Simulated scan of single mutants.
Amino acid sequence: MSIILGIETATKICSVAISDGEKLLAIKEEGGAYSHSQKLTVFIQEVLDQAGKTFKDIDAVAVSKGPGSYTGLRIGVSSAKGLCYALGIPLIAVDTLQAMAKNTPPNLPSTDGEGMPRYYTTDSQMWNLLLEKAKEHRKKPTEAEMVLWKFLRTKQLGYKFRRQHPVDRFIPDFVCIEKKLIIEVDGKIHEFQKEEDKIRTEILNENGFKVIRFKNEEVICNIDEVVSKIKAQLQSLPSGEIKRGLLFCPMIDARRMEVYTALFDENNNLVEHITAKIIDEYSFAKHLKSHKILFFGDGAEKCKEILSKHPNAIFTDSGLPSAKTVNEIAHEKFNNKEFEDVAYFEPYYLKDFIATTAKKLL
């Protein structure tokens, strides 16, 4: 596992988190005013103390790279670079808007019909009923499930797999939505419920999913052959049809009616490039015709009066910048060794900094 210290200072929120792999160990965040120069180093020490870690335990530092506040980004990036240089560890840069989009919860408002997130593979009522149970299952994987997950996670086979993901009325072990493939890892109890498993498979097939099963012993004792069979299935199956799902639009206030923004899909992939956009009634018109768009962030409120008239525009208070999601993205980058040059890395300001004179000095 990798211990990653995450820093988020692109907006008024000062956020620091420390994670061990995908597990969040500690987080400290506070908003309301630009006081990052006073808070950041204090927050870093606090999360280290809460997690029972020292600076020597850190494997990498992840920082929100922008766009956002010029001063906030300078403070966050300078601190991250200083730590990496002093400790001799890698620096990971994470796009601020992408991290915000990842910080939106799955139980989003008004996502019926085609606006429903594509990873909802059952109706919304059943999804909410099964979600907590699925989370509990993820916390208590079997030995065989842990072995197989090491090979499926972070798109190692070329496709995203989800653990304990609800489909119809069931919670399969592993699901690849793009390829409509379900992998079940069976313990000995399944030897006595073959009829139930047959019915379950038939229902999952009716939902368009291919189901393959492996016994615990196969996974633990012959993982290479199991992975080879999964690869063969992935290659043989066509990619599922991409439906018109919900789009995520994080917005950071860039003053007046301008915002830093981008569009992401349900899998956190970039749909429309990052830009400084002046919002008017025609903004996002092309995408709003065919998608519901969730707008959020400190720049969304001032755009609400203009954009909320469209039936496909949804606004939420969630999706604020957080070091927690910076670390989630950084974890995959760490595994892929996507590191920055500590000496030459600069924040992504998007716009040139313009110095002004304080009004009280005029």
Rank of each mutant, 00 (worst) to 15 (best):
I92Y: 07
T96Y: 03
P166R: 04
H36L: 12
N222M: 02
M126Q: 14
A276Y: 07
N216M: 02
N222C: 01
A33W: 09
G21W: 13
S322W: 04
K102A: 14
G31H: 08
V94D: 06
A62T: 13
L234R: 04
K135M: 10
L48S: 09
H331N: 14
C176A: 15
Q235G: 10
T357V: 15
P109M: 12
V326M: 13
T316C: 06
Y159M: 15
Q50V: 07
C303N: 12
E217F: 07
K337C: 10
L361G: 00
E191N: 15
N205C: 13
F55D: 11
F170T: 14
I183S: 05
M1Q: 04
E202A: 15
V219K: 01
F248G: 00
R213W: 00
I13G: 05
P117D: 09
N216G: 04
Q45W: 03
V271Q: 04
F345N: 13
V185K: 08
S236N: 07
T71P: 06
L148F: 12
T201R: 14
T9M: 10
T111W: 01
A99P: 02
E114I: 10
V47E: 05
Q235W: 10
R255W: 11
Q156H: 11
E281F: 01
S15L: 15
K179N: 08
L24W: 03
F43Y: 14
P311V: 11
